[in-house]
Design a protein around this nucleic acid. Structure first.
Length: 584
RNA sequence: GCGGCCGUAGUCUAGCCUGGCAGGACAUCGGCCUCCCGAGCCGGCGACCCGGGUUCAAAUCCCGGCGGCCGCACCA
């Protein structure tokens, strides 16, 4: 195969394996799809990309970063809805053992529409398969019981099989389950954001797109909490004139994927994007990708259709980047999760996830209070009285009052509460504030996908040589140091320069193997932005040449000004031409 | 998960049809040479995806598995 005919995905995967950016894990045992190991260059590239995310969100926006376990007890993902939603119905042929998506068989057999088939539960699927006499499409054998294939990794915690745990399919839930403590740490003020960068696990049925779809991958989840009654974003004025390229759900429903280019301000005025904070995060995501080397015209935000959205989301945009092989692929998702998750965890755990917000001025209001009379509840409900009292406190008093008036009793779950069990009081109160569950917008990045698109957009071919033109602030190695030839004291001098730059905190590589041209070529392929060459002039006057990876131009300057200039260069405060006098 | 194609050093590949010592190129390492872009010379390391079968003998033929690519499906 000729390298010119291959697509960039293939070229990048080959280069990645050869130069040690990443490769498929467990090759020794035949390899397992969906798992990847980053080598020296790739691990550092990924760290540098994540460092940029931290600079952007943690340093500049004050979002708090946490690090929490990958394994969670089953309850967490039961509450979050993942146990119910993160699964596909499968059915196995009793004769040949092949497995199929149960709903797809029904759809393909022409008996049901896509929407109908998707709604069925296991029992209904079984009945539909039997009722329509659907058989194995391969061998016409009889089909067994439909079963769900759970796409979360399941395990047990400790030695007891009943202690079920799941590998997290997203890093978000850690933030929701720790909400109370995080809110306290944020000094009980809204809005505030929490970020987690970590591994997530999804047992994909058939992943085979390299870094694009993995079973274990790094996810960057940010949960940004705000008061739904005050959704305005104090950063909006900095971003309202930025443009976003959107593909709206309404136009997708009309069968068009046209991209509209709108200013953030307009997107909010026209309600294309429901929450201002979400628009701001989308803008930041766009800028981030540009800094990783993806031009804005190769990016778009596509609004998910209602049935494409995750179960927790009210509005979702996927940030997509155009790549050579697959066209548009998702690099980040922006979901408006509202109060879904905190509400669910409050329901399942019984822990109050509401926040209290003080009004500027107290509001006078008449309040109905249902006070449980323990002397009455105790004898009737015995040891359940405590629990009932607590449940009554969480019930809306008005509901109880209305029910007493209409029916003479109130059903609290399975408990029948009579008027004599409680005291209903009206009281004028000064409301000092309100209690509510914060809403949340979630920007979520796939770290591995960011690495991939960075590689693809850095990939260039110049005079038949491969160059990885990484933006200078994420290059895994910053500087190469080379003696022009390995004799006459040049290597010794080069080692001095190498050590000085290492001491200055740069990522430096020393190389004296082979011809100088070969070393430059190797460095270009590893994406090293600058090459410093020690030649015979260095011996005379302590000057070196500095070579630019992308243009192959060289400048010359004194060794002792290198540290200061290089620091400025890597902070993008000066350009290559400012590093010295142009050679030739 | 289904169908088609495929699997030989780090990479690309010859050999497979017709069974008989697995060869080359690039990369890499050591040496020589070398005053700025994968130069040259000498030398070294390094491979038949795994398992089973047929056979005196399997990279080669057969079966199964694993993995890859393409298409379908999936991607909450």
């Amino acid at each position: 195969m000729n390298s010119q005919q291959q697509d960039k995905f293939t070229l990048i995967n080959e280069l990645a394996r050869r130069r040690g950016f990443f490769w498929q894990s467990y090759e020794m045992y035949g390899g397992v799809s969906g798992f990847v190991t980053y080598g020296f260059l790739g691990a550092r590239l990924k760290q540098n990309i994540e460092k940029k995310l931290r600079e952007l969100f943690v340093n500049k926006l004050g979002i708090m970063e946490i690090e929490a376990p990958i394994i969670a007890p089953a309850k967490v993902f039961e509450a979050s809805g993942h146990v119910d939603h993160f699964k596909e119905p499968m059915v196995e042929c009793l004769k040949c053992g092949r497995r199929f998506r149960a709903d797809h068989l029904l759809r393909e057999s022409g008996k049901l529409s896509e929407a109908e088939a998707e709604k069925l539960n296991l029992k209904e699927l079984k009945e539909a398969i039997e009722g329509h006499n659907v058989r194995c499409p391969e061998c016409k054998g009889e089909l067994g019981e439909p079963k769900y294939f759970l796409t979360m990794f399941k395990t047990t915690i400790g030695p007891y099989s009943e202690a079920v745990g799941y590998g997290r399919p997203e890093a978000a839930q850690n933030i929701f389950v720790e909400f109370r403590r995080l809110y306290e740490t944020a000094r009980e003020k809204l809005p505030f954001g929490v970020m987690q960068i970590g591994h997530a696990l999804r047992n994909e049925i058939s992943p085979r797109q390299g870094l694009i779809r993995l079973r274990e991958f790094t996810i960057v989840d940010i949960e940004f909490f705000f008061d739904p009654e005050e959704p305005n974003c104090f950063l909006l004025k900095d971003f309202e004139n930025e443009t976003l390229r959107l593909v709206l759900a309404e136009s997708r429903l009309r069968g068009s994927e046209d991209i509209i280019e709108v200013k953030v301000k307009e997107a909010l005025e026209k309600s294309y994007i429901k929450v201002p904070w979400q628009a701001v995060f989308m803008t930041l995501a766009k800028k981030l990708l540009m800094e990783l080397g993806v031009p804005s015209e190769k990016q778009r935000f596509i609004e998910k259709l209602p049935w494409e959205r995750a179960h927790y989301s009210l509005q979702s945009f996927d940030q997509e980047v155009y790549v050579d092989r697959w066209g548009w692929i998702e690099v980040s998702g922006h979901a408006y999760r509202a109060d879904y998750d905190l509400k669910q965890h409050m329901r399942f755990s019984g822990v109050d996830t509401q926040v209290f917000k003080e009004y500027e001025r107290p509001v006078e209001a008449e309040k109905t209070i249902v006070k449980p009379l323990m002397t009455k509840l105790g004898p009737v409900f015995k040891d359940e009285a405590q629990k009932i009292a607590k449940m009554l406190e969480e019930t809306k008093p008005e509901e109880v009052e209305v029910s007493f008036k209409e029916k003479g009793y109130y059903m609290l779950g399975e408990y029948k509460i009579l008027p004599e069990h409680v005291e209903i009081r009206k009281r004028k109160v000064k409301e000092k504030g309100k209690r509510f569950i914060p809403h949340v917008v979630e920007p979520s990045f796939g770290s591995d996908r960011l690495v991939y698109v960075t590689l693809e957009y850095a990939y260039r071919v110049k005079e038949d040589r491969v160059i990885l033109s990484f933006p200078r602030d994420i290059a895994p190695i910053q500087v190469g140091v080379y003696p022009l030839v390995s004799k006459d004291g040049l290597p010794e001098k080069a080692m001095q320069v190498y050590k000085m730059l290492v001491d200055e905190g740069f990522m430096v590589e020393y190389d004296e193997a082979g011809s100088i041209g070969r070393r430059y070529a190797r460095a270009d392929e590893a994406g090293i932005p600058l090459g410093i060459t020690i030649d015979y002039e260095t011996i005379k006057n302590d000057t070196v040449t500095i070579r630019d990876r992308d243009t192959w131009k060289q400048v010359r300057n004194h060794i002792n000004v290198l540290p200061g200039l290089l620091h400025k260069y890597f902070q993008s405060k000066i350009n290559f031409e400012d590093l010295g006098d142009l050679v030739k």
